[in-house]
């Protein structure tokens, strides 16, 4: 009995340590963002010489963080809608028409998941430069869609294969054409997998850096991750504004997480156990 109790306490302590470790960077960012550059008290202390809100003003005005959030929102929403729609459309024949050709097509698309974005950086960057796609929303959206779409096609195909064919057969007998059947019968049944795909895609695109840092150099269209890294590098040793910028950029994610927490974790697990 006593030993079990001891174990219980040890586990609770371990969890407290894990929680503290995970919160430490957020806490340090908070204290740093609230201090004037002249206040050199320990990072672990809250501001001792009054709260200095200027850091947030600098992050917004010089760092362009709000504009970056807007840019990320545009690129994320458009990419996510495209990845869901193109993924569901492409998955239908792959799930329902099992020919040798379609097995090859699915295998090829799944193989694309393994391509790391950096390995096609050079040719993709020069291709988009030739097409006038660098420093544009559409260029970034195309890059995001082609990197996220393979997983989407795979998840939709796996899900559709589990759906009974009988309903579609009945619809066909009733004279529905292909598009009517897709939009009225098949797509409404895809809500669970669409939630998974939408969460995986929007988190990945919102946070994307490896390609967007090169494709979006113009501050007018730059998304959050490249904006933060550029701003951090430009701030040298005055870290308060950089910390403020990081915190502002976390706010929308935190809000979405608070509202949709269950879906986030479920969606991520479903995506990982593919």
């Amino acid at each position: 009995m006593n030993r079990a109790r001891l174990g219980h306490v040890a586990i609770a302590l371990g969890l407290v340590v894990a929680v503290v470790v995970q919160l430490a960077p957020f806490y340090i960012a908070l204290t740093t963002s609230l201090k004037a550059p002249t206040e050199l008290t320990s990072q672990w202390l809250l501001p001792q010489q009054g709260v200095y809100w200027q850091n947030f003003r600098i992050a917004i005005e010089d760092g362009g963080i709000l504009r970056a959030i807007g840019n990320s929102a545009i690129v994320t929403v458009v990419s996510t809608v495209a990845v869901c729609l193109l993924g569901a459309l492409a998955a239908y024949p792959l799930a329902r028409r099992r020919s040798t050709l379609n097995r090859l097509v699915l295998g090829g698309i799944v193989a694309l998941i393994m391509i790391p974005p950096l390995s096609i950086l050079v040719p993709l960057y020069s291709l988009l430069t030739d097409l006038g796609g660098t420093n544009t929303y559409w260029g970034a959206v195309v890059a995001m869609v082609v990197t996220q779409l393979p997983l989407s096609v795979f998840l939709y195909t796996a899900f559709m294969r589990e759906l009974p064919v009988a309903i579609e057969e009945a619809a066909a007998v009733d004279g529905a054409n292909l598009l009517q059947m897709l939009f009225r019968i098949v797509f409404p049944m895809l809500k669970p997998v669409t939630a998974t795909v939408a969460i995986l895609t929007s988190v990945a695109v919102w946070n994307e850096y490896a390609l967007s840092v090169f494709l979006l150099r113009d501050p007018e269209v730059r998304t959050i991750a490249p904006t933060i890294s550029t701003f951090l590098a430009s701030q040298g040793n005055s870290l308060g504004a950089a910390a403020a910028a990081a915190l502002i950029s976390v706010a929308p994610v935190l809000l979405a997480y608070l509202v949709l927490q269950r879906y986030f974790i479920k969606g991520m697990v479903a995506g990982a156990e593919r």
Partner: peptide, 27 residues
């Protein structure tokens, strides 16, 4: 809380960890 950083951009987490490991001003 333990899951939260998964959703934050690695760049933003990196920037916050920089505040922890920085030579002159690090926590």
């Amino acid at each position: 809380i333990i899951y939260l950083p998964v959703l934050v951009s690695p760049v933003v987490m990196g920037a916050m960890y920089y505040l922890l490991f920085s030579y002159n001003y690090g926590g």
